[in-house]
Amino acid sequence: MSPTVRAADVAVGTELPEQTYPVTRADLVRYAGASGDFNPIHWNERVATEVGLPGVIAHGMLTMALAARAVTAWACDPGALVEYHVRFGRPVVVPDDGTGAQVTVRGKVGALGEDGRARVDLTVTSGGEKVLSLARATVQLA
């Protein structure tokens, strides 16, 4: 069994460990296949620029998935996330330069319920810009 974060050890303001996840073009192709979202703006530079984007962008749902990883890694249980809401503010542009983009996730406990549920308010950035204009996850703590 993994260690778990207990509600008793958490307070409003508790910060989650900061996480940074790399995102490459290969990751976008893999995510397209796994999720079934084959929108060409996530793998085809020509189509992405034709529709006015700066280049190929990550699936918003991939960014959302990465931000959830930061929360469930902290809670030590991927099944603990009960409510999760994000607003996509700005695309994560993934250059074809062998390095790609980086998504950084910071989180802080914003509310704590008597039922052991913690609301985590997330700040998700790429290239120094906020990419999710709202991101809140509620986890059921042990």
Binding site: M1, A34, L62, L66, P78, G79
Partner: peptide, 22 residues
Amino acid sequence: EFADAIGAPDAVHRDADAARAA
């Protein structure tokens, strides 16, 4: 496959025994 695509490392996504233990 989905866990691999998002880089989620947890055993509960891949190993039924680990999932049952959790």
